[in-house]
């Protein structure tokens, strides 16, 4: 039983956590791609920016002696989401919109977004330095322990308070996005523009407004993903650096421009990573007496060493693209 609990803690919970973050990130990437047809490389740094916005707000309120029954990082996340949306609109106005007006190719915009990545990282380092920070300096990080003794377990299933919030909020965000895209006039206009930009223009859809709404959503989702990642682990200026590639892999695997595909892709990549680095020797423990010695004493039976976790996303990417070149949900091609 304890082996199973260990598996739940290490794979199910961790996989859901990282899968949620990848999914939120990939949705933002895929929305921007659907509307503006370029891979927005700086999406990861919008996540970092959002997390630093939340961090700053928390620091200010904590310094004022303010506290809430829920983690401040969760309570203030909506404000940071709004700020990041404004920042995303600013980035578009300052960098991408002028290039679009000149009729720049997608690859030019991609390279511009790499420039924006470097700029954002620079600005964040300028204000916050390079140190690693935590949201839980002034308040405790509560851990829920679900007692499993009724099932014969001696150890509990553990889940931190931010993780519990994350699971709930990701469900809320996905549902909200679903209703926005399928029920609201603007959401449908967004899907129309992603489906057929020329016809959207011909129909009189206000494409400039759709572009703004896209950046607002992308900024908000990025801030949410970034804050959650920082709450779960820690916050540093290169927070997004290690996850931007899996996020792009998730968006491509799901089919670029496909919102539900990006969610599916995010969880697929997230779970694949946690499964790949999981040490399967745990499950051998109960049978140790009956196993040949080399197997009974095997150390670290995981598919991929943790340091090479990043490769998992690419293995999945390559496999999916070989089988379905446009992703799981038929996506747009460039």
């Amino acid at each position: 039983m304890d082996e199973l609990i260990f598996f739940i803690n290490k794979v199910i919970i961790s996989g859901t956590v990282i899968g949620s973050i990848y999914a939120l990130g990939a949705v933002g990437v895929t929305l921007v791609f659907g509307i503006l047809r370029f891979a927005h490389f700086a999406h990861g740094d919008m996540m970092t920016l959002g997390a630093f916005f939340t961090y700053s707000l928390v620091a200010i309120l904590a310094a004022a002696g303010f506290s809430l029954p829920i983690p401040l990082g969760i309570a203030l996340m909506p404000v940071a989401m709004a700020l990041t949306s404004v920042a995303a609109l600013g980035l578009d106005k300052g960098f991408y919109a002028p290039l679009r007006r000149k009729g720049a190719k997608p690859v030019t915009l991609l390279i511009a977004s790499i420039g924006v990545t470097l700029m954002l990282q620079g600005v964040i380092r300028l204000f916050y330095g390079t140190s690693t920070r935590t949201f839980f300096e002034s308040e405790p990080k509560d851990i829920f322990r679900i007692d499993m003794s009724w099932a014969g377990g001696t150890r509990p299933i553990t889940i931190t308070e931010p993780q519990a919030w994350m699971f709930g909020l990701v469900v809320v965000a996905v549902l909200a996005l679903h209703f926005f895209l399928t029920r609201s006039r603007l959401g449908k206009g967004m899907r129309a523009m992603s489906d057929n930009p020329d016809l959207a223009q011909v129909s009189g859809i206000n494409t400039a407004l759709v572009v703004r709404v896209t950046w607002i959503l992308a900024g908000a989702l990025a801030a949410m993903a970034g804050t959650m990642l920082a709450l779960d682990v820690s916050l540093k200026p290169d927070l997004a650096f290690n996850i931007i590639l899996p996020i792009f892999a998730a968006a491509v695997v799901g089919g670029l421009g496909q919102t539900y595909g990006a969610i599916a892709g995010g969880f697929l990549v997230g779970f694949a990573e946690t499964l790949a680095v999981f040490d399967w020797t745990v499950f051998l423990r109960p049978f140790r007496e009956n196993l040949p010695e080399w197997l009974a004493t095997a150390q670290g039976l995981s598919l991929v060493p943790t340091e090479y976790k990043l490769t998992v996303a690419f293995v999945i990417l390559v496999i999916v693209l070989l089988v379905r070149p446009t992703g799981i949900f038929k996506g747009l091609s460039t």
Binding site: A192, N196, D198, L199, G204
Partner: peptide, 25 residues
């Protein structure tokens, strides 16, 4: 109003959503 020669429907959207897009304004 204009109906282009090619690619004149939103293929991924339902018939009703296509019509709604015509009334976006």
């Amino acid at each position: 109003s204009f109906v282009p020669q090619e690619k004149n429907v939103f293929t991924s959207m339902s018939v009703e959503e296509n019509l709604e897009m015509g009334a976006f304004i």
